[in-house]
Design a protein around this nucleic acid. Structure first.
Lengths: 216, 216
DNA sequence: TTTGATTTTCAGATTATTTTGAAATCTCAT
DNA sequence: ATGAGATTTCAAAATAATCTGAAAATCAAA
């Protein structure tokens, strides 16, 4: 029988399977990298992580460079950050001078790390700023004009909102936590609002290409 | 006694109070703007929103331009996005040709909008990509080599994780939802983990000097 | 319909972020 | 201790995101 060249499931050569494996990995890496920029980390950092996660293999700097096509310096910096995030770790391979790096394999640890870092870098600074502003603004008690009262009211509301989110997030992301997983499952079942069906506002309307400022 | 110039609470002139009000508003606007870049929206867009929210006043394009010191075009684009996000609305003032804009005053609606937009722009595309990759990767059933099985396993885990998050988030951000508020309060009490204080996972040996480094 | 005020658009300028690459530093097997 | 191999650093280059400003389009009142 002629060699199947495209879609059949069962007659792929080893090399073909391997090629498709690599291809799928690359797609995953590309997606994760795209997310990276959106999450406020560099594309390369996200890609390095994706590579180590999806392959599950410990890799050294040169292997990473070659596979992703990025510079040595860039790999070095990305790896350092990932180590700080504690989503990858160093491993020593016997009889080799190089450092090898390997990703934490539990996906939740990865998700928690993302959440943890984001909270640290986004919410906490905002909360601090809000506290400062609140203290700094005129404190005139009941005699304050409406303007001032309204300012304090809004500042307080924002701060309360984000504090609630922080509390929640700390439960999710705490070092000892299977928190995110359990909490998420719990919540996913709990009847929170009165949402009957699922009608996110007109998901169908493909009218805006982007909600972003002005993507040209 | 000389006029009190700085910290006393009770003897500020009207002008001084006004100046401090403006100053506090500006600080809030600046903080919110900084967050904006971190949240993936332009600084100006975040600032416009902050201005309208914190003052509570309907403002027209020129007022916004003057207060924030940004161009007309920039205000126009930011306002458009904010309208799409549904966190501000147009108001007509009698006898005036201009459009005025006013922020939604419920803080939770604002937080929900942020969450909703982020999910839409970040998680959903990733999920789609993951589905595509999963379908595309070799489907070899039980006969598949370890490599392929591992790939599918990891893809599935990531997808499941993010799907759980999406489900959760939809409850939070649904259009009719006081969801976020109630759910957050609920969760904040639920005994999820045993997080007592914050003990950073000290995996560190005393051997290295400091591993600290700049944020990427 | 005309008019002039108001808003939108978008090419180009500006600003911010990311990446490179080669020199400097480190480190470990000998 | 030495030095080849490995990693880190960081100024400069490349890339990406944001903002401006003026021309074009829109709109509401007369």
């Amino acid at each position: 029988m002629a060699r199947n060249t495209s879609t059949s499931k069962s007659s792929l050569s080893k090399a073909q399977v391997k090629a498709q494996l690599i291809d799928s990995q690359d797609r995953f890496i590309a997606s994760w990298g795209r997310m990276g920029s959106v999450w406020g980390i560099s594309r390369t950092m996200a890609e390095v992580h994706a590579l180590l996660y999806i392959t599950g293999t410990p890799m050294c700097t040169d292997e990473i460079m070659d596979r992703l096509g990025v510079s040595r310096g860039n790999v070095s910096m990305s790896v350092r950050s990932l180590l700080e995030w504690a989503v990858i770790e160093k491993v020593r391979l016997t009889g080799d001078r190089k450092e090898y790096y390997q990703a934490e394999q539990d996906v939740w640890s990865m998700l928690r790390a993302i959440a943890r870092e984001r909270i640290k870098r986004e919410v906490d600074p905002l909360l601090n700023a809000l506290d400062d502003i609140g203290e700094l603004a005129p404190q005139l008690g009941t005699h304050a004009p409406e303007d001032i009262k309204a300012l304090h009211k809004r500042l307080d509301e924002v701060r309360d909102g984000f504090e609630l989110i922080t509390t929640l997030a700390h439960k999710f992301t705490g070092p000892r936590g299977a928190g995110l997983q359990t909490a998420a499952k719990l919540l996913a079942k709990a009847p929170v609002g009165r949402s009957k069906k699922h009608s996110p506002q007109s998901k169908r309307k493909a009218t805006h290409k982007s909600t972003r400022g002005g993507t040209p």
